Amino acid sequence: MSDALLQPYLFFNGRCEEALAFYGEALGAQTEMLMRYSDNPEPPPPGMVPAGFENKVMHCSFRIGQSVIMASDGCEEGARFDGFSLSLSLTGQDEARRVFALLGEGGQVRMPLTKTFWSPCFGMLTDRFGIGWMISAA
């Protein structure tokens, strides 16, 4: 499996474009590809896509630094992001503080930024979309 590539795939329950804009502003995320349900060359099975989702995001990929994350609006209600966090390592404490504050807007701080034995500046939060983040400075 040395050639395997593992990428997170996030389902935003109808808020994918909002999340892309938010991460673009907060993290400089760049959308690399975006396909709407209405762009699908093959119609989905009846009842699979909720009514009103025709212009929602069926699939997209975006880049944060060297990492690519895939995402969608999904086809189900009640997106939950339990059991994992995205870990973001930044080059300095000022950048870690800036990003932590931006990601925390409308979210919830789980551990304020503080010095730890592995980082001069580490903290954890859940953003407004329910995504857990662990922010650290090198």
Score class of each variant (00 low, 15 high):
Gln108Val: 08
Leu34Met: 14
Pro44Cys: 13
Cys121Ala: 14
Phe62Leu: 13
Ile64Met: 02
Leu113Phe: 07
Gly107Met: 10
Cys75His: 07
Ala19Asp: 12
Asn40Thr: 03
Glu54Gly: 02
Leu103Arg: 11
His59Pro: 15
Phe84Ile: 07
Asp39Cys: 00
Leu34Asn: 05
Phe12Arg: 01
Ser61Ile: 00
Thr31Glu: 10
Tyr23Ile: 01
Ala51Trp: 01
Leu20Val: 01
Met48Glu: 08
Arg128Ile: 05
Ser38Cys: 10
Val57Ile: 14
Pro45Asp: 15
Ser136Gly: 07
Glu76Gly: 03
Ser89Phe: 12
Ala51Asn: 06
Met1Leu: 11
Ala29Ile: 00
Gly130Thr: 02
Gln7Met: 12
Gly74Arg: 08
Phe12Trp: 04
Val57Arg: 05
Ala71Gln: 03
Leu34Arg: 14
Arg97Thr: 10
Pro43Gln: 11
Val109Leu: 07
Arg15Asp: 02
Gly92Gln: 04
Ser2Arg: 15
Gln93Cys: 14
Val57Gln: 04
Ser136Thr: 09
Gly52Gln: 03
Phe53Cys: 04
Ala96Thr: 11
Gly130His: 03
Glu76Met: 12
Pro112Cys: 08
Arg36Leu: 13
Ser85Pro: 06
Trp118Phe: 15
Ala138Tyr: 01
Glu17Arg: 14
Leu125Ile: 01
Arg15Thr: 03
Met70Trp: 01
Arg98His: 07
Ala71Cys: 13
Arg98Pro: 00
Arg128Lys: 15
Thr114Ser: 15
Ala29Met: 06
Tyr9Val: 08
Arg97Ala: 14
Pro41Asn: 12
